[in-house]
Write a protein that binds this DNA or RNA. Structure first.
Lengths: 115, 115
DNA sequence: GCCACGGGCAACGAATTGGTTGCATGTAAC
DNA sequence: GTTACATGCAACCAATTCGTTGCCCGTGGC
């Protein structure tokens, strides 16, 4: 068996889990939503309308940045955050892989049952 | 504006965050990987090869079940768990939406800059 | 009937997380 | 230069999470 496909899913957890973990918070997911609409936004801007403190938002942004989902850049006296689509793309691709693998397994089972 | 698209992303966090949170753990993501290969497996079976206790695995499975990612069914003296593809599909769709929205925003910005 | 296997339940502990407040600092604006 | 704004940093707190151990119970095999 080639070192592809099969081990791909087995090796993925270590890389993908942190990304999913970062997305696994309501506040952070909202931030992603906001940032995907209007791309570079400052922390105070992102705090508007939220029910938590600016510091909380700041921490959340650092978490997202740590997972590679977002990137912050200081500009003057404010830090602008923008989406980093690569990480989200990889997460999406992982889910695609699971779907595909699951589909294959199901097809295999079906074939086995019908034989 | 129709009540679709735009509010879709805004309303999503509450529904999607728990799913991502459930996936945001290395052990649980491994379980998903195992279950997507061979579909119905018992808890002890899923514990094999893991470096944590059966109870830990059991708890993780409950978390996944709570998020709708997995479904367990008692069969004799063992509980068989199988993947529930719907939740993962929705997560995937969410990421697709973010991608699309982000792409549109980027296109809009580009158009604005070039005009 | 007896024993081994597969799990559930509960209590507990250590570590992490999500949030706060208070204060310090650099930058923009006037 | 003074003032207001945007942020960083640190300490701290409550709640949750991940994992353990110990014990009990139902089921299956012999």
């Amino acid at each position: 068996m080639s070192p592809g496909r099969r081990s791909a899913l087995a090796a993925a957890p270590r890389r993908q889990a942190p990304v999913f973990a970062a997305l696994g918070d309501e506040t952070r997911l909202s931030l992603v939503g906001k940032l995907c609409g209007e791309s570079p936004q400052s922390i105070s801007r992102l705090t508007e309308g939220s029910d938590v403190t600016r510091q909380a938002i700041s921490k959340h942004l650092r978490v997202l940045e740590g997972a590679g989902i977002v990137r912050g850049q200081r500009r003057g006296r404010e830090t602008l955050f923008r989406l980093e689509p690569r990480a989200l793309d990889q997460a999406r691709r992982y889910l695609d892989q699971v779907s595909a693998e699951w589909g294959r397994a199901l097809a295999g089972l079906k074939a086995y049952l019908e034989e």
